[in-house]
Computed example of a mutant assay.
Amino acid sequence: MTLDAVVAGNRFLHYLALMLLFGSSVFLWRLAVPGLRLTIDRRLDSALRTAAALAVLTTLAGLPLQAAEIVGNWQAAVDIHLLQKVLRIDIGQTWALRMLLALLLMTLALVRRPGRPGSVAIGSGLLLASLALTGHAAMDQGLRDFLHAANHVAHLLCGGAWLGSLLPFLLCLRLLADPLARGDAAVTLRRFSNAGHFAVAGVLLSGVANALLVLGRWPTDWSSPYQLLLSLKILLTVAMVAMAVVNRYVFVPRMRNDSPSAIAAIRRYTLMEIGLGVAVLALVAVFGMLEPG
């Protein structure tokens, strides 16, 4: 396996873990009805703790992999003197800050009480937002640098809130079959539907702004690997939006007359939405390593 493939894989797992943590925690904290919050939280507990551990491990791996990328060989990843030099430059200092945030997140995930996801939502949100300190968003200077970073933070948080909340959404959907939980589940799903409009709009608007800030134009030169992969990301995101719209405006109204088949359709489309979202993260993990142009 090549160094670039390992770096891209580490980036992908890092994005996936953080978005699951942030979106699921926000869903539980701000959208789930209190009577339902504990039930869903218990079912997600193992997944969220695993995601927190993965976030720490992938952050930890970032420094040696960065050193190996700079030098261009695997030996640099275990060269203590080189790692110390990298820690003295901006890349290393950013990694140190993110490592502290990752350890804070792990601590919050371990000590949190069931049904109290607020601290993990904040901790994962901070670590997710700190990705704006790296990559293309950190290449500008002055006011443009601030605006680019702020826009990237919005893109990351909206994307995490959207994609990461789809797993607890599926669990909540299943609870509609439980007579004792049906009322709370219906209220929670309505809250999710309303909040989802803002998250999706935020992803689209900040995504367009990101493309313009990085390239200065729309990515139409497909001879450029960066622009080709960015265009694929845009297409997959549009497909995700289309599925979300169909779920909300086609299948949700049908739940009044044909609830079982409508719920089954919503579940299928949501699973496809998750699959597309994972593919988007894989593309981002790759083209985020490429030079724009």
Rank of each mutant, 00 (worst) to 15 (best):
residue 200 V to W: 09
residue 66 Q to A: 13
residue 231 S to G: 13
residue 156 L to K: 02
residue 88 R to G: 03
residue 283 L to H: 08
residue 256 R to Q: 10
residue 252 V to H: 04
residue 100 L to W: 10
residue 89 I to Y: 06
residue 175 L to Q: 13
residue 153 V to M: 11
residue 274 I to L: 15
residue 115 G to F: 09
residue 82 L to F: 10
residue 57 L to P: 00
residue 235 L to A: 15
residue 106 M to T: 02
residue 127 L to I: 14
residue 145 D to H: 14
residue 28 L to I: 06
residue 87 L to N: 04
residue 7 V to C: 04
residue 177 A to L: 13
residue 111 V to S: 07
residue 125 G to M: 10
residue 260 P to Q: 12
residue 152 H to G: 00
residue 254 R to H: 04
residue 94 T to A: 10
residue 110 L to D: 02
residue 9 G to K: 07
residue 112 R to L: 01
residue 206 S to C: 11
residue 195 A to P: 00
residue 124 S to F: 07
residue 249 Y to N: 07
residue 183 G to E: 14
residue 172 C to W: 11
residue 107 T to I: 06
residue 190 R to Y: 13
residue 286 V to W: 10
residue 286 V to Q: 09
residue 54 L to T: 15
residue 273 E to S: 13
residue 18 L to W: 07
residue 73 N to V: 01
residue 182 R to W: 05
residue 90 D to T: 08
residue 270 T to C: 12
residue 200 V to C: 10
residue 190 R to E: 10
residue 15 Y to T: 01
residue 264 A to K: 12
residue 173 L to W: 14
residue 146 F to A: 07
residue 108 L to I: 10
residue 246 V to Y: 08
residue 258 D to A: 11
residue 69 E to M: 13
residue 140 D to T: 03
residue 202 G to R: 11
residue 28 L to N: 09
residue 218 W to P: 00
residue 193 S to C: 03
residue 83 L to A: 06
residue 187 V to S: 14
residue 63 L to C: 06
residue 283 L to T: 04
residue 135 G to K: 06
residue 78 V to C: 11
residue 187 V to W: 08
residue 141 Q to E: 10
residue 165 S to N: 14
residue 11 R to H: 12
residue 54 L to S: 15
residue 10 N to D: 14
residue 84 Q to D: 12
residue 183 G to H: 12
residue 185 A to Y: 05
residue 243 M to F: 12
residue 23 G to M: 11
residue 181 A to P: 00
residue 112 R to T: 00
residue 113 R to S: 12
residue 187 V to L: 15
residue 113 R to K: 15
residue 220 T to E: 11
residue 63 L to H: 05
residue 72 G to R: 07
residue 96 A to P: 00
residue 136 H to P: 00
residue 219 P to K: 13
residue 35 G to H: 10
residue 254 R to P: 00
residue 223 S to L: 15
residue 30 R to P: 00
residue 166 L to Q: 11
residue 231 S to I: 00
residue 220 T to P: 00
residue 133 L to I: 05
residue 256 R to T: 09
residue 51 A to F: 04
residue 13 L to G: 03
residue 191 R to S: 04
residue 59 T to C: 11
residue 76 A to W: 04
residue 291 E to G: 06
residue 31 L to P: 01
residue 215 L to M: 11
residue 98 R to T: 01
residue 247 N to H: 06
residue 47 A to K: 10
residue 159 G to W: 08
residue 152 H to Y: 08
residue 24 S to D: 06
residue 274 I to A: 12
residue 85 K to M: 14
residue 96 A to S: 04
residue 227 Q to H: 08
residue 228 L to W: 05
residue 239 A to R: 06
residue 256 R to A: 13
residue 46 S to D: 14
residue 12 F to A: 09
residue 142 G to Q: 09
residue 246 V to W: 10
residue 95 W to I: 02
residue 141 Q to C: 01
residue 51 A to R: 08
residue 108 L to W: 09
residue 142 G to D: 06
residue 135 G to H: 04
residue 112 R to K: 08
residue 57 L to S: 15
residue 114 P to L: 14
residue 130 S to L: 05
residue 65 L to E: 07
